[in-house]
Design a protein around this nucleic acid. Structure first.
Lengths: 226, 226
DNA sequence: TTAATAATCAAACGATTATTTGACCATTTG
DNA sequence: CAAATGGTCAAATAATCGTTTGATTATTAA
């Protein structure tokens, strides 16, 4: 009986260790991080993480097995999403703990993701104030689907993918703040650089929608256009 | 340059994946869970997790490598502790997410850790109320070192290890609440059972010090007696 | 119906992991 | 000093993991 309960305790720890498994590979972390921006198909995830479909599928199998990610078949796609918002918050907590405990992470962030000219050190709340002032535009550089699923209120969507073509539609009469998927997002760097090269006064916010949401601020959704 | 930054992003994810590694084995989870109760030597941890010293040492090497656990040599012991309180909170968040997402975890908890006669469903705040009333004793079943490092205010320490010998010192004039290391703690079940077998009206609280702390309540420390 | 697409699977590989065993080193105690 | 204790290390093992390749299934489009 005592051994019985001990084995049950072990069973709980084994189930929870699947959560650890989910986060124990950089590729899977990337997948979780992308999914925290909204649902995606296996195909999209494979492309966005630069790996073969088979490899992505295998990682997603681990993630689904942990319970953190849910995959639902619809037509010939399997749409993957985080099981709920708390999964994204767990990822956020891990990231924050990383910056807190690991000097190496802080150094990389400082040296590569906080170029002072093109990046803004506004906090989430400070950014909200700034955006309320109507002195500036906020540009969401993520995909249309991510934007539709949820974005910072008042943000305009100019997906990085065809920013070069759509860039002329941005009126040059205000300051511009950009955001993409978060503090470690490469798209945010690239998009902001592109805007600045065209002479637009763009600055990159050092957070994304998950951080905005985690601060308790409201999120805006939009219906798909088509 | 673009590739350079991509490799830095990957470096961050690789560092964070060590956090995942830390939680990706039941044995290591057990170690983290024990360390969330206070510092312990490698030896103690090996004994408490029922594994060889070498095996425990190897697991602790992984944990130290992740940055979540710190080991400090003092005399001929290496004392291990969590890097800071947020590590314990991360573990708590994972556990809560597990109960939220995994029906299997909920079932085990319900069937094996919530026997209604001997366990109390008081929440942390409700328990605080009850303890303020002076109608009951609160008994901390953990080791003396854990108790000294931090315990619920007003709790008396009767370590499970020699509870059979010390049990007579408990006055039988009040209700008794017990706690040990948390909701999945075997010691809590065993100790409470022992008290009840001796006719004492003991009920097990379904939380421990980490949950108490996480609720923002004050913690009491005591100097070692010796 | 056929062709194309999305996803998984199966086999295979090299790399990594968990655990045991026994040796080893550092520190303290007798 | 020698003996005992606490901890790590090195080698060996069996098991598991990550990725590739190519085949296979399900669904949709032509």
């Amino acid at each position: 009986m005592k051994d019985d309960i001990a084995s049950k305790q072990k069973a709980i720890y084994t189930l929870l260790s699947k959560f650890g498994d989910a986060f124990s590979s950089p590729q899977r972390i990337k997948l979780i991080s992308l999914l925290s921006q909204g649902p995606k198909s296996v195909d999209q995830l494979a492309a966005m993480t630069q790996q073969s479909k088979a490899a992505a599928s295998a990682h997603l199998k681990v993630l689904r097995g942990s319970g953190l990610v849910i995959g639902e078949k619809s037509g010939r796609h399997v749409w993957c999403r985080l099981a709920n918002d708390n999964v994204g918050l767990l990822w956020l907590a891990m990231r924050n703990l990383g910056e807190e405990l690991l000097p190496e992470v802080r150094e990389i962030v400082r040296d590569y993701f906080e170029a002072p000219e093109s990046s803004s050190d506004l906090s989430v709340v400070a950014a909200k104030e700034e955006l309320n002032s109507d002195r500036s535009y906020l540009i969401d550089l993520r995909t249309a689907l991510e934007y539709e699923t949820g974005h910072i209120p008042s943000a305009l969507n100019f997906p990085l993918g065809n920013l070069e073509n759509s860039i002329e539609q941005i009126p040059p009469d205000r300051d511009i703040f950009t955001y993409c998927r978060g503090p470690y997002c490469l798209g945010a760097l690239e998009g902001t650089e592109l805007l600045r090269n065209r002479g637009l006064p763009a600055k990159r916010l050092r957070f994304g929608l998950p951080e905005w949401k985690a601060s308790g601020l409201a999120v805006e959704k939009s219906e798909p256009i088509e």
